[in-house]
Design a binder for these strands. Structure first.
Lengths: 301, 301
DNA sequence: GTCAACATTTCGTCCAAGACAAATAGAGAT
DNA sequence: ATCTCTATTTGTCTTGGACGAAATGTTGAC
């Protein structure tokens, strides 16, 4: 039985939201401890996590709240199956099966082999990126546990970081600064972009996740960055993203271009001038070429 | 000018805490937007971040709240100087100077060189661990920016992950599962432990940070872990840590030993039976030997 | 003087209900 | 089919009161 703050941490839903849902929809319906504080049981947490995931995929709370766990799970399965228009490659299902069997070392081996066979860019574009989605969907369908996802993320990170480090010396430009705003802790997208750029010999300054807004601008100037790339996962609050991007764009003045990527950006409407939307990882190379074309006169090579 | 939720994200102080401080101490004293909502300016955010850091180092809010930014900074400097009983090695100040000069590639090179010269375990114990502390203190003294810390963390992570991957095949036992509780996103401690263990050929299952409590137990069983190692940074709420540890200990039954490490653990009083306190990284090897001694009869080798 | 037990202060979190504004959905017009 | 305007949905913010856990200070015994 967990308190409201523990549920907030576990699910990513704020205390205010949890209380409001209880007030409006009657779910969750936690018990109370002797001093009147909410106590949530495990089954409600599981349901909340599932609801959160479905909302991140675009569903609205009002439609989900009165459904049972079973119904929600079916909804998730149904929705993810719809998206599997193009048949899922056998290589992906193999990897997911390895995850399910909890064979850590075999997973690592398999990933490394794929990297060698496909090459860096192909590996990222055709294996890692779709696999991330597939793993998330497998969770919604109940086929993978959260810790399976964590293990997957760690191994991919290991493989990608090793690959980045092994790349030869970098060119001079463009210098790309990679990070996320505070509260966005999903850093795999950044790492994939860094990998793609490393394959192009582009020098990156990777700050990891959750850099305060004002620090991003300062860092961009200190490191003389030409491009500042931000990543937003589907769960990031839309308003906060828009506000953060606008604010950063202003602070940077004209010193750098801003790239925004991640699954959230499709939902962003109008972007300020000087902000480039990276819809998918396939857009990274074109965006890079565009930058090079635009800046070839003043800084050749 | 930032809203209360943005400040919460930037500083790690909850909305409730920010409002309570305003009520009790008169700081922070945000302005209001047209609809009456709080707006914090940049100088107050800086001060709040500094206060948070000093609190993580053991200070109490009541003593800090009526001091100016200047006084707080001096307090931080004074306190960190006291701790520098043993003179700081030149190698450390060199690395910090590299950080200050924003020379990303030189930093990476320097770290790799130190690793080669010192060997894996020495590198972690005598370079990385003290350097982490030194970098944090340099921030309190205003000598490094937050993004400098981020960059440092990323590079250390690159070096350590590469080193771990390059280690030869592992033994059979003990199998160590590494992770943190939800809301603890500081994963460098885990990585250092994993590095030390890798040097001993101990197989690790690294789940990264923020694994839900119930998932940790499930994962430990699924991966047949002998040891579950958790890390808690200084800023983690003490109560939550104690509660989490006790709960995990119970869920695991007798199937695995629990290790708890990180700067918080010194403040934990009594630990449940079957939980081992790792005060510093130097304790990792002894704890490992202790485990081997205790389990040599049932599972030799 | 040192340690243990108790009292007090400090401090963070929780609760409730009301209010507002941003985002979305739906209806209607061009 | 696309746009605009309105209605609904939904998350976050507000206030002020209360409680309980941790840290600190005080007392008393050895």
């Amino acid at each position: 039985m967990l308190s409201i703050s523990q549920v907030e941490r576990d699910t990513g839903l704020s205390k205010d939201t949890l209380r409001m849902w209880e007030r409006r929809y009657g779910f969750p319906q936690p018990g109370r401890d002797p001093s009147g504080e909410r106590l949530y049981d495990a089954s409600q947490i599981d349901k909340l996590r599932l609801i959160k995931r479905l909302m991140d995929a675009g569903q609205r709370p009002g439609k989900l709240m009165n459904k049972s766990f079973q119904e929600l799970s079916e909804l998730g399965a149904q929705q993810t199956v719809e998206q599997q228009d193009d048949s899922l490659p056998a290589a992906h299902t193999d990897l997911i099966k390895l995850l399910q069997s909890h064979d850590s070392s075999a997973l690592e081996q398999h990933l490394s082999q794929l990297l060698l066979r496909q090459g860096l860019q192909q590996f990222v574009l055709t294996t890692v990126a779709p696999l991330n989605v597939a793993v998330g969907e497998a969770w919604v369908r109940g086929e993978l546990a959260i810790f399976d996802e964590h293990l997957y993320t760690e191994h991919v990170q290991d493989v990608l970081r090793a690959a980045i480090q092994s790349m030869p010396r970098r060119q001079e430009s463009p210098r790309v600064l990679l990070t996320t705003l505070p509260h966005e802790h999903h850093g795999l997208g950044l790492l994939m972009v860094e990998t793609l750029l490393a394959a192009e010999r582009v020098p990156c300054i990777a700050l990891g996740t959750q850099t305060p807004l004002s620090d991003i601008a300062t860092a961009a100037i200190a490191h003389r960055a030409d491009i500042v790339a931000l990543s937003f996962s589907a769960g990031f609050p839309l308003r906060a993203a828009a506000a953060g991007i606008a604010s950063l764009r202003q602070e940077l003045a004209e010193s750098a271009t801003v790239w925004v990527g991640g699954r959230l950006v499709a939902r962003l409407k109008q972007l300020p001038k000087g902000v480039c939307r990276i819809q998918s990882l396939d857009d990274v190379r074109p965006a890079l070429n565009a930058w090079r074309a635009a800046n070839s006169r003043s800084a050749p090579g």
